[in-house]
Design a protein around this nucleic acid. Structure first.
Length: 352
DNA sequence: AAGCCGGGGTA
DNA sequence: TACCCAGGCTT
């Protein structure tokens, strides 16, 4: 199983072609590795880099993260998506302060017991922070192993995923993989999948694993890994109320603690126009002027959403703010967690 | 096992 | 448009 020298060939490739200047590598601390790994869940490197730099500048260590207000953390996450990652991140920081002396725990099992850290992320943190010998299995590794070992079937299927984990474990257990190179090996797998063994048009001519790669031998590198089974996503629509008062401020509401965009600040949202009209009537809102703005198309992983914003300019003093809503200025919005399409809409609004 | 949870890059 | 990405949590 390990005679293919998978790990050592990958490391030799990494020394020449790997990425050695990512921001979380300099300096490389457990806190920065952890933050980067969570940000990188289902999110590409180029997207993460500016968010990572802003986050560590604002909250440079674990105690600072634990002590920050939840709204501050969500604001720093705003635009990255999957906001439960941010909530879990802070919850984990508080657990570390309470149970682990203010640091990340030193074992993968204790890491994986923290919210937001699963098996692969725990292994990535431990190997990169302390050179611990643990296998990772992220999207990159799944693709590389599916090709190298010729594994058929969608990697998201549990049976396929179990096979891929066993291959990943066998490679990391290779005695030829030096104990001081586990951090590099983890990074090498990610870099290899992200830059050479890419989803489309992999650079097989430059591949150090080519002679043992089953997909290449069978000419199936463009067919593996097997794509996810097709699914047609449902379409939904919603009406957003853009209320502006005399001062030009906009009314934002905190969203419910569960569901999409949980606990973020957004515009009042309704299933349809009737719901919006009813809400306006209940709050005795008297619009001086109103108009429909351009629709916003927004895609989620499980449905498509069309947002239909309706602008109302309100006359006179309107008192509809409470603990979960308030009138905000353009500069207020910068410090709040706001869904990306709503932030785009508000930025356009304030420019006019 | 399947559904939920964002946003952006890419072909 | 459709798919994928340094996944994990909930049911």
């Amino acid at each position: 199983m390990t005679t293919d020298a998978f790990a050592t060939r990958l490391l030799a490739w990494f020394d020449v072609h790997g990425r050695h200047d990512l921001p979380w590598q300099h300096p490389r601390s457990p806190y920065r590795v952890w933050l980067s790994e969570v940000m990188l869940q289902q999110t590409q490197v180029a997207t993460v880099v500016p968010y990572f730099l802003r986050f560590v500048d604002a909250l440079p260590d674990l105690p600072a993260l634990a002590a920050a207000s939840p709204d501050r953390v969500l604001a720093l996450w705003s635009g990255l998506g999957y906001y439960s990652r941010a909530r879990n991140l802070q919850a984990a920081a508080k657990l570390c302060l309470e149970f682990h002396g203010g640091e990340l725990p030193r074992s993968v099992d204790a890491l994986a017991a923290l919210p937001g850290i699963g098996r692969s992320t725990a292994a990535a943190i431990a190997s990169q922070s302390w050179n611990d010998r643990h296998a990772i299995l992220d999207g990159n590794v799944k693709r590389v192993l599916a090709r190298f070992h010729g594994v058929d079937g969608w990697p998201g299927a549990p049976a396929v995923e179990r096979r891929l984990w066993s291959f990943a474990q066998a490679h990391v257990d290779d005695a030829a993989l030096a104990p001081d190179r586990l951090a590099d090996y983890t990074q090498a797998q990610m870099d290899f999948g992200a830059t050479l063994c890419t989803r489309s048009r992999p650079a097989c001519v430059d591949c150090p694993l080519q002679i043992d790669c089953i997909a290449f031998a069978e000419g199936r590198q463009n067919e593996l890994p097997t794509p996810r089974p097709a699914r047609t996503l449902p379409r939904r629509s919603a009406v957003l109320l853009v209320l502006r008062n005399d001062a030009g401020d906009v009314l934002l509401q905190r969203r419910p603690p569960t569901g999409v965009w949980a606990s973020l600040w957004s515009l009042p949202q309704f299933e349809d126009e009737a719901g919006a009209v009813s809400w306006l009537g209940r709050h005795a809102v008297d619009a001086e002027e109103s108009m429909w703005l351009d629709d916003i198309a927004h895609g989620f992983s499980h449905y498509h959403l069309t947002l239909r914003p309706r602008l109302h300019r309100l006359a006179g003093a309107t008192r509809i703010a409470d603990a979960d809503s308030g009138w905000v200025t353009q500069s207020d919005i910068a410090s709040l967690g706001v869904p990306a399409p709503v932030r785009t809409l508000l930025n356009r609004l304030f420019e006019n």
